[in-house]
């Protein structure tokens, strides 16, 4: 078999946060299409179950966690590992953005975003690096953002959290290299999702102005999912500590 035409995650368990919608849901769907077994994490049982119904994965475990309650994450992940065995991969897609100018960027608004965008992910990694919880040569991907690389008005806190993700990814990559566990991130530009449209505090005109800054236009969740699949795949074993910009050229302008 030609090793360059197979992407297969058969018999591999992959954990995906933020799996009920948007980029996380697209990644779950893509992993299922590549035969992965999935642990899908979301806030809402109903929307998580809907996601699971609409993806072709053979083995799916649903886990309802409020990721802002960081104290619950490690024990719940421990119970999942006890049930399904060692995890191969993890993609931290859960994220929130609270766009507000610096004059109203309170410690509370920063911490709320940091809790989900970074700490929930590192808590899951903390659970997975316990002995036997993750396969040797496993792979971890955090979803970052172009805002880890460039600034945006009203995005001081969001940029800080995504910058922190990149820094944490590099540190984890070095630390976990001894176990051949790879840690990377993907930084999407503007992708059409419910969060970027209905959930945004920006007007339609403001969102359109952002899209226009992307030479290749707005992205789709599948564009990000392909990059994540690439980084998660076990054959890409010499890539760690890096960030893959998937932004339609946004940061090249």
């Amino acid at each position: 078999m030609n090793e360059f035409n197979t992407i297969d995650f058969e018999n591999k368990w992959v954990v995906v946060t933020g799996a009920s919608s948007g980029i996380g849901q697209g990644i779950a769907r893509a992993l299922a299409a590549c035969n992965a077994n999935l642990v899908l994490i979301g806030r809402n049982q109903e929307t998580l179950a809907e996601t699971a119904e609409n993806i072709p994965a053979e083995n799916v475990k649903l886990l309802v966690i409020d990721l802002s309650d960081s104290g619950t994450i490690v024990p719940l992940m421990k119970s999942v590992v006890e049930e399904v065995g060692a995890i191969y991969g993890f993609c931290h897609c859960a994220g929130i953005v609270d766009t507000r100018p610096i004059n109203v960027t309170t410690p509370d608004s920063i911490l709320k975003q940091l809790n989900i965008n970074l700490i929930a992910g590192t808590e899951i990694v903390r659970a997975l690096v316990k002995k036997g919880a993750m396969e040797e040569q496993g792979s971890i991907v955090f979803i970052s953002s172009v805002y880890a690389h460039v600034g945006g008005a009203g995005e001081t806190a969001y940029c800080a959290t995504k910058g922190a993700v990149g820094a944490a990814v590099r540190a984890m990559a070095v630390e976990l290299s001894a176990r051949k566990i790879r840690v990377n991130s993907v930084s999407p530009g503007f992708v059409h999702t419910a969060m970027t449209e209905k959930g945004s505090k920006l007007t339609g005109a403001q969102l359109e102005a952002i899209v226009e800054k992307h030479p290749l236009g707005a992205g789709a969740v599948e564009d990000v999912a392909r990059a994540v699949i690439f980084l998660l795949h076990h054959k890409n074993k010499w890539i760690t500590g890096t960030d893959l910009l998937v932004d339609g050229g946004y940061t090249s302008v």
Binding site: R100, V104, A153, K198, T203, Q206
Partner: peptide
């Protein structure tokens, strides 16, 4: 202006938990 709108939305949320949709 656009930043004023974002400040307004943050203040409405912080003070009264009012979230405006688009």
């Amino acid at each position: 202006d656009s930043m004023g709108v974002l400040t307004l939305m943050a203040e409405l949320d912080d003070r009264f938990s009012i979230n405006l949709d688009q």
